[in-house]
Design a protein around this nucleic acid. Structure first.
Length: 288
DNA sequence: CTTGGGTCCTGTGCGC
DNA sequence: TGCGCACAGGACCCAA
């Protein structure tokens, strides 16, 4: 589910609830998510004070006192939801009558000093958490080989041209490769390629320099627009505070198969093709 | 090294 | 209403 804009939205939602407060209680409902959780995970978190919340790519980084950081990845279906007495109960899950945090896929529960509760829910369990020394985060196996942040200075036309040069893989696959650029997923790659006028199956190394420039701009603008909209809410995804993002209403190609291209005077029809094991959406008239 | 495919897991929506 | 299948926002791991 969550790509960079959704994780950034979650970070912004959790920051005011968690930063500066202690974790008074942590409940771990199963030994593993995608991988085993650290030994004595809940114990090691209990009583710690939360520092700033940061983000790297699609990873949420929750700094704790004691110079460690809780690394969280939401995978496909992971969510971090806020509830608790001061906010009013926020119910979810199949039953709907269970207490907040007792839902079917509520795997980890954080009770925050002051009464609020943050619940990690993940039906498909592709998500992950780990606890790691803050000073060594760059060496963590999940973070070590990530490419630059698309909204940072290290990501620019020269960098992208260099990384795409000589590559025969389709540009769609290249942009999904987190080692080349970190934080994009299926939705935002489709949307950025459309905005740049680049066809998803075009070999990465065959894109002209001006098109690469357009692509870097399109990637940044797409992500910034999505963050401003609070991310995309497909199915029942929600922000941490239970609100829905609304960028899905601004999709130009994603999930629009068979519908008209939104470019003025184009009159093309959005197509869906399987690529890298997932769906690519594009306008065959606008993208080359 | 690069590239493509299978895999993990559960839920939902569709055609029949 | 039930059943089977395709598909879902990710990314690791391995074979060629």
């Amino acid at each position: 589910m969550p790509e960079l804009p959704e994780v950034e939205t979650v970070r912004r939602g959790l920051e005011p609830v968690m930063a500066g407060r202690r974790l008074v209680r942590v409940i771990q409902r199963r030994p593993d998510l995608r991988w085993p959780l650290p030994e004595r995970f809940a114990e090691r978190l209990t009583g710690r004070r939360v520092g700033p919340l940061r983000r790297r790519s699609k990873y949420l980084l929750i700094d704790l006192d004691g110079d460690e950081t809780l690394i969280v990845h939401l995978g496909m279906s992971g969510r971090l939801l806020i509830g608790g007495a001061t906010l009013g109960e926020f119910h979810h899950g199949a039953a709907g009558d269970s207490a907040f945090g007792d839902g079917k896929h509520d795997h980890v529960v954080f009770d925050i000093e002051g009464g609020k509760r943050v619940v990690f829910n993940d039906a498909r369990r592709f998500g992950a958490m780990d606890l790691w020394p803050t000073a060594d985060l760059d060496a963590h196996r999940l973070l070590a080989s990530l490419g630059p942040e698309p909204l940072g200075n290290a990501f620019n036309e020269d960098y992208l041209a260099d990384r795409l040069a000589g590559r025969r893989m389709p540009i769609k696959a290249a942009l999904l490769d987190q080692r080349i650029i970190a934080g994009l997923g299926n939705i935002y790659v489709c949307e950025a390629l459309y905005r740049a006028g680049v066809a998803p199956k075009r070999p990465a190394g065959s894109i002209s320099r001006p098109r690469i420039a357009a692509l870097t701009t399109a990637i940044r603008e797409t992500l910034m627009d999505a963050i401003a909209a609070g991310g995309s809410s497909l199915r029942d995804y929600r922000q941490a505070d239970g609100e829905l993002g609304y960028f899905q209403h601004a999709f130009r190609v994603y999930d629009r198969e068979g519908r008209p291209c939104r470019t003025q005077n184009c009159r093309g029809t959005i197509r869906r093709i399987p690529q890298s094991g997932r769906s690519s959406f594009y306008c065959p008239k606008c993208q080359h």
